[in-house]
Design a protein around this nucleic acid. Structure first.
Lengths: 308, 308
DNA sequence: CTCGCTCATAAGACCAGCTTATGCCCTCAT
DNA sequence: ATGAGGGCATAAGCTGGTCTTATGAGCGAG
């Protein structure tokens, strides 16, 4: 038996084997909401025996009783309530995935064509799309992700109705509205000496320290270089936000990243944010459209969602 | 064809049918990281043809090309990079689910027995468990969720090694350390008139308005009643945080909830937070243990994670 | 006492995903 | 040049999980 097989035997296989699939989680949420296996079955479009068997096998898989069955319905056990709350998070992430994926697919015949920068497309857009779907379920949206220049190009060629950019400047020919702010923040692994600093970092200190950075030319790198006067010293240059995060987590050194990108990691303290004095690392997130063509219809709808 | 069937046909079935399963998402992440279908296949423990077919069917399902295959390996397309980022969120939620579910199961033979209040178990503990697993992969944790009194009881009966509570007071016989803070906040749906207020709400105004609340006796209700001097007027009383959230989202009225519980909803603007003047809605989250028995071993490890 | 709701069990159909066995393409080193 | 090796695709067959239909049994209300 290989080492991997041994590990998997004791741990119960891979993640996908230990976690019920989305259908089962959705079913569980429906049971929690409706208080009955049969009703939940109807809602998700299967028969009652299928629901019964599915919940049962989920209980076997998790090794925990999730629902109390009675001739008058089914209620969650205490453990079941907890599991359901955790399950809700998985399903919500899946819904965001779905909203995004549908927008990537549509392309043609969509009533709203959006062009967005990577950071916005990655972290904010799925949520907006879900909200939009809640308000106007039949609005088909298509999404194209690219840098500021690409977004501008699409808009000016009338291949997109609304754009979102995060650069320092607004491309020519476009009007814009600030919809949110983003800050670049300095993060380190909790084990890094800086994590124990009491005083904010000085700008010179930051400029003098080799940092884990995105490659030159990326949006976040531009902002940082501008803020430091072109002085940022790279320890490593990586080509994706994810790679930078991973590198920082493994304590390779301090990294500079968008607040949006590390919100999760900060919340669970996988990374720690270091305050910096005297550097303007704030940047605007903007909605953009061709000069004069104020967004109307679905575009206007989406725009209003992004500002509350 | 029924209405439901019609809707499903056009939308492509239920969520579980539109979103690839966890195994496929994990595989995609592996491909992104390793740059090759075959290598990714080895990592997740399947054969190369299986991986090839799985990625292909995922592309068909989403209607988007995800990877550029070449005789020298596979790289993500632009759309693939975006999809992978969204997929990562789903997988992370699933990992948190898994960490929590394992802790619910173990019960016996676990080296660390934790008792926690619902809110903490729901929102914070999975993240801590993941962090702990990263540091000490072989620490089996068991979890019991209950109110403050139940947590105290377990600790004093030596049936738990470490507890977490969120009440106003620390139960007798326990020492404690504040590990974080939580605030109760007033939230409304974006459509609610309060969402457009410019000035903070006065305490009297809050006390005079019927609110969507948890039932009397719940932790958050206790804190609110104490802060308002027992004056909170319920519009409806519901028995779970989730029900309160749902009710607030559907614009039934203002609700008061833990900041932890609505972080997500605020981020995507499904709910809006209303500042309140002159009321102390802050409460401490505390780790607790039997007086004199400072946590050692795995308990100490976990405790240190909760504070960074 | 029977209707209507609940859930459980059993038997069989079906399909998605896996494996093994191939083959082709490209690159690099001998 | 030529073979070795890594990359991916295709085909055929097996397996297991999940569905369905059919049925039965418990509990409560009219």
């Amino acid at each position: 038996m290989s080492e991997k097989e041994e590990r998997e035997r004791t741990a119960g296989g891979t993640l996908a084997h230990r976690v019920p699939d989305l259908g089962a989680l959705e079913l569980l949420l429906a049971v929690a909401r409706l208080g009955s296996l049969g009703a939940a079955a109807r809602e998700v479009g299967i028969t009652q025996p299928a629901a019964s068997s599915r919940i049962r096998s989920m209980e076997r898989q998790l090794g925990v009783a999730l629902v109390d069955r009675s001739p008058r319905g089914s209620r969650l056990t205490d453990a079941g309530a907890l599991v359901t709350d955790w399950a809700r998070r998985v399903v919500e992430a899946a819904e965001a995935f779905d909203a995004g994926a549908q927008a990537l697919r549509d392309r043609r015949d969509s009533r709203l064509r959006v062009a967005a920068s990577m950071t916005i497309a990655e972290y904010l857009l799925p949520g907006w799309l879900l909200a939009l779907r809640a308000q106007r379920p039949d609005t088909a949206v298509s999404l194209l992700a690219g840098n500021s220049a690409a977004v501008a190009e699409r808009l000016l060629a009338d291949e997109a109705d609304l754009g979102f950019v995060e650069g320092l400047t607004v491309p020519h020919g476009l009007d814009s509205a600030v919809i949110a702010h983003d800050r670049l923040i300095v993060v380190v692994a909790p084990a890094h000496p800086w994590a124990r600093r009491r005083r904010p970092l000085a700008a010179e200190e930051l400029a003098a320290t080799p940092l884990i950075l995105r490659e030159r030319g990326s949006g976040t790198r531009q902002v940082l270089d501008a803020a430091l006067g072109g002085l940022a010293r790279p320890l490593i240059e990586l080509s994706s936000t994810t790679a930078v995060k991973a590198s920082a987590v493994s304590a390779a050194g301090p990294a500079v990243l968008s607040e949006l990108a590390v919100r999760e990691e900060l919340a669970i303290r996988r990374l720690v944010s270091i305050p910096v004095d005297g550097v303007a690392l704030r940047r605007d997130l903007r909605a953009v459209w061709p000069t004069g063509h104020r967004p109307t219809g679905p575009a206007r709808e989406l725009l209003s969602l992004t500002r509350g």
